[in-house]
Design a protein around this nucleic acid. Structure first.
Length: 574
RNA sequence: GCGCCUGUAGCUCAGUUGGAUAGAGCAACGGUUUUCUAAACCGUGGGUCAGGAGUUCGAAUCUCUUCAGGCGCGCCA
C-alpha cells in the first residue's frame, strides 16, 4: 500500500498543486507518509498538505479535503479523514491492511530501488599495544551494527581495522617486553611510561630468543636515565635497540603479532569480523621517496604546504581548519597526521562513495584537519562521515568499576564477554546513542528479570517459538498465510507495530543510529507481551487462531531480523 | 579564551530530521498465576522539555542569548 499511496501523493503534487520545480522538489523532500502511531488515526498518515500549504500559500484543510477525495478511489482504501490542522489519515480495508503483513519483512521503500553505495566503515582501530578493553567494545558493537544495517538496506559494506603498527607506541611495547623478559627493573622502579599489564609478561614468555640474560648489561641500561618518563622510555628504546639489534626487531615483530592475534581472537568471540586489516607500515617510510606516503606528501607539497621553523606545514586553514598543521617534523620524521592523511587518501582512492570513521569522542578536535586534508587531495569532505563514540563507564551494583590503563589494571572486553556473553554486551553497548556517555551496569545485565531489557526482548521471541511448538504439538501446521480476514482484528496493533520495522531500519541507517533498533525491539516486545497476556491463543476459535498464529510469525520474524541487525542471535527458548 | 557535545519525570534514557494529548524502563504504591513460560501483565502517582527571547498555522526539535556540566584545542598518538 505504501507504494500506491505515495504514487497518489506524487500525482497530487504534480496535477493539483501548481508549483515551480524547486518548490516541488522541496515539497517532495519534506513531506512524509508514515504509519500512524495509533490506529484511530488510520493506518497511514501524511503531513503533505501542511507542508504544501506553507510552500504554495494555500489553506491546508482545503488541500487535505482535495487530497482525501483523490485517495478514496484507490483500491484497498476504506476511508480517508482530514484531521487536526490538515493531516490526512488513511484507513485501509482489513484485507489490504493484513496484506501488508504478508510482506512484513520486505523493506519499504524497497532497497532494490535505492542507489546502492559502496561504503567503508573503519572502526575499533585500537593501538596494538594491549588487549581490547570495554571502551573498545562499544566502538566494535557500534561499527559492526552500522555495517549490518547498511547491508540490510542494500549497500555494499567493507569493515576495516587500521593498525597503527609504525609508531613509537610499538617501540614502547617492545621495550616493555624486553624489560620484563630480562627483569631489568624491580617492580617499584619499573618505568612509568612502559606497559605494565600482565599480558606483557605473557608475551615475554611466548618469545624465545638466542640472547642470554648474562649478555645484557643492566647497569649500563639503567644508568643516568632522564627523570621525565617520556624521555626515559625513549632513551631506553634507543639503548636496547642499538645494543641488541636482532633481538630487538624480533621482539618488536613477535610482540606486535601476539597482540594483534589476541585482538583478533577477542573480536571473533564478539562476533565482529573485519574484511580488511590495514597496516600503517604498508604506507612505507618518508625516507624512501618512492613510498606511498612520500609520493602523497610530495603531491601536497606542490600546492598546499610551506616550510617554517625547519618543519613542513600543511595549509589546512585554507580548507577550514583552525590552524595549519605540521606534517614533517624539524628532524625529518613524519607526524601522526602525515600517515593518517595518506591513509585517508588511500581509502578514498579505493573508490568508496562514503567512508565512515568511528572514533573515540576525545578525537573530535581531529575531524576538521582530516576534512581539510581530504579536500587538499581533491576529494569532498562530505565523503567522510565521522561518528564519535563516547567511552563507556562500567558499573557493578551501583558502583563504578575503576579502570586504569596506565597500571595495566583494566576490565577487558574479553572479561565482559566471558561474564555476560557477547549478545547481552552488544545489546547494552547499543542501547544508547553512540556519542553520549554510557553507564553500563553489569549487575543488571546478569539478572533474569524485567530490569534486564535484553532478556525482556529475547523472551518475546522465545515465547512465540514456544507457542508455535505447542501449536504444532496439537497436530496442526503453522499457517503461511492469513485466511478469512474480513473480521480478524485481534492483532491489528501488533501488526501495525511490526510494519514499522522498515521505517526504523531506514531511519537507523540514514542517521547511523543503531540504538533506534534497540528501542524499537523494546516496543515490539512489549506489544507482544501485552497481547500474550490478554489472549489465550491456543483456546481461540479455529479461524481466529490461524490468523493469530500467522500474525505472531510475522512478529517473530521482525524480532529476529532486528536482533540480527545488532549482531545478536535470537533465542528460541530460555 | 576559542571550538564541539550535553541539559526531557526521583534515577537511566527515547522522541520517526518542525506535527496531533511529550513517551518508556527503573524506583514507589496496589493488584493478576488450577489456563499457551510470572524472565510476564494490569492499575496509581510523578513534567515550567535548564531559564529567557525569536521564527510560524504548530517548537523538546530551528535561530539568538543566559546559566550549568563534559570534552578538545602539541613538531603526542
Amino acid at each position: 500500500m505504501f507504494t500506491q499511496i505515495s504514487l497518489a501523493l506524487n500525482n497530487f503534487i504534480d496535477d493539483v498543486l501548481d508549483l515551480a520545480s524547486d518548490q516541488k522538489n522541496l515539497l517532495i523532500l519534506k513531506h512524509k507518509l508514515n504509519l500512524s502511531d495509533s490506529l484511530d488515526k488510520g493506518h497511514w498518515t501524511t503531513n503533505l498538505c501542511l507542508i504544501a500549504s506553507n510552500i504554495a500559500k494555500k489553506n491546508p484543510k482545503e488541500l487535505a479535503a482535495q487530497l482525501a477525495l483523490s485517495l478514496e478511489g484507490i483500491e484497498g482504501i476504506q476511508k480517508v479523514e482530514v484531521a487536526g490542522p490538515g493531516f490526512v489519515n488513511i484507513f485501509l480495508t482489513q484485507p489490504a491492511f493484513l496484506q501488508q503483513a504478508e510482506v512484513g519483512l520486505k523493506l519499504i521503500p524497497d532497497p532494490e530501488q535505492t542507489t546502492k553505495q559502496k561504503i567503508q566503515i573503519e572502526f575499533v582501530s585500537a593501538n596494538p599495544t594491549g588487549p581490547l578493553h570495554v571502551g573498545h567494545g562499544r566502538g566494535a558493537a557500534y561499527g559492526d551494527a552500522i555495517g549490518r544495517i547498511l547491508e540490510h538496506l542494500g549497500h555494499e559494506v567493507e569493515r576495516e581495522y587500521y593498525v597503527n603498527d609504525a609508531g613509537r607506541q610499538i617501540d614502547i611495547l617492545a621495550c616493555s617486553i624486553f624489560l620484563r623478559k630480562f627483569t631489568c627493573f624491580d617492580e617499584d622502579t619499573f618505568p612509568g611510561s612502559a606497559y605494565k599489564g600482565g599480558y606483557v609478561l605473557d608475551i615475554a614468555d611466548s618469545i624465545s630468543l638466542d640472547l642470554k640474560a648474562e649478555e645484557i648489561n643492566k647497569e649500563t641500561l639503567r644508568s643516568k636515565l632522564p627523570e621525565d618518563p617520556e624521555a626515559q622510555i625513549d632513551e631506553l628504546i634507543t639503548r636496547i635497540q642499538s645494543a641488541h639489534v636482532e633481538s630487538w626487531s624480533l621482539i618488536r615483530a613477535q610482540g606486535l603479532a601476539y597482540v594483534i592475534q589476541s585482538i583478533k581472537a577477542d573480536l571473533t568471540e564478539f562476533k565482529v569480523n573485519f574484511d580488511h586489516w590495514f597496516f600503517e607500515s604498508s604506507l612505507g617510510n618518508l625516507s624512501d621517496n618512492q613510498s606511498e606516503i612520500s609520493l602523497a606528501i610530495q603531491k601536497l607539497q606542490k600546492n598546499h604546504t610551506y616550510e617554517k621553523d625547519g618543519a613542513v606545514w600543511l595549509e589546512s586553514t585554507k580548507f577550514g581548519d583552525d590552524k595549519d598543521r605540521v606534517i614533517i617534523r624539524e628532524d625529518g620524521r613524519g607526524t601522526y597526521l602525515s600517515a593518517d592523511l595518506v591513509y585517508h587518501k588511500n581509502k578514498l582512492d579505493r573508490g568508496f562513495s562514503t567512508i565512515i570513521n568511528v572514533w573515540g569522542s576525545d578525537h573530535h578536535g581531529y575531524i576538521k584537519r582530516i576534512e581539510a586534508t581530504i579536500e587538499a587531495f581533491g576529494y569532498k569532505k562530505q565523503q567522510m562521515q565521522v561518528q564519535l563514540v563516547q567511552f563507556a563507564n562500567l558499573f557493578e551494583d551501583g558502583a563504578k568499576v575503576k579502570m586504569s590503563t596506565r597500571s595495566g589494571n583494566f576490565y577487558t572486553l574479553k572479561q565482559l564477554i566471558d561474564d555476560i556473553g557477547p549478545d547481552a554486551s552488544r545489546f547494552y553497548y547499543l542501547s544508547k546513542q553512540a556519542d553520549q556517555h554510557l553507564d553500563f551496569d553489569i549487575g543488571v545485565a546478569r539478572t533474569n528479570s524485567k530490569d534486564n531489557l535484553y532478556y525482556y526482548v529475547q523472551y518475546a521471541h522465545a515465547r512465540i517459538c514456544s507457542v508455535q511448538k505447542k501449536y504444532v504439538g496439537l497436530g496442526k501446521t503453522l499457517p503461511n498465510a492469513f485466511s478469512d480476514i474480513e473480521n480478524f482484528h485481534a492483532c491489528d496493533e501488533l501488526i501495525q507495530l511490526a510494519l514499522n520495522f522498515s521505517f526504523v531500519v531506514h531511519n537507523a541507517g540514514e542517521n547511523l543510529h543503531p540504538h533506534l533498533i534497540v528501542y524499537y525491539l523494546r516496543d515490539l516486545a512489549q506489544g507482544f507481551h501485552h497481547f500474550y497476556n490478554d489472549v489465550n491463543i491456543l483456546n481461540a476459535e479455529e479461524a481466529e487462531q490461524i490468523n493469530i498464529m500467522r500474525s505472531l510469525a510475522v512478529v517473530k520474524d521482525v524480532l529476529g531480523s532486528a536482533l540480527e541487525l545488532l549482531g545478536i542471535e535470537p533465542l528460541d527458548q530460555m
